[in-house]
Amino acid sequence: MDFQFDIFLASLPSLLRGAATTASLAIVSIVIGAAIGLIGGICRVSRRAVLRYPVILYVTVMRGVPLLVTLMFLYYGLPSAGILLEPVTVAIIALAAVNGAYVTEIVRGGIQSIDPGQMRAARSLGMSYSLAMQRIILPQASRRVLPPITNESLTLLKNTALVSTITLSDLLRSGLEVMTWKANTFSPFAGVALIYLLMTLPLVWLNSFLEKRYRLR
């Protein structure tokens, strides 16, 4: 074991800069992914095939293709088709798209878990489908989907480590750089792991808070 506290300390500023990149990537992708997921989930339960089928295709593709492959395809593959994207752009597209697919499935499940009697009661009162969705179904579904969405966000946060493969100086890559620079593997990696862990803690807490809160009613 070659843990050296001074190397660990010296690597921290660089690691924290990487962590900032990781955190912003995660936050932006979580927000965009949630928006995609909400819209996707609503389309997924629609009776209209034009809304439903494209979403099914999207979800199937994003769930079936490894994130690493998506990243590499966008970063190394697209330029050969004449499309050049910044690494940050590629990272956000890939992360948000994959997160959006998972959130879509969560939202679909949440909507479908609501007793059909709720929709029937709402429509019988004269509500339109979209009003009933907005006022009756989604508010109830949101309680059920928030904990799994938090969980999915946690997964996404950790998956951001894959963007180090497309030259982004995220937390992992910063660790790797320090490692080469100081010729010490253990200390920077301890820092990397610790910082990932610390960043996931708020999500872990949020998750258990939401689960507790929504169990009550």
């Binding site: 009697g117 029937r120 109830q140």
Partner: peptide
């Protein structure tokens, strides 16, 4: 259809109240 349904009240065996 929605306009017509406003004037017809229906109550079900399962009350179907909005729990939220």
């Amino acid at each position: 259809l929605n306009l017509l349904r406003r004037d017809i009240g229906i109550v079900f065996q399962q009350y179907n109240l909005f729990p939220h």
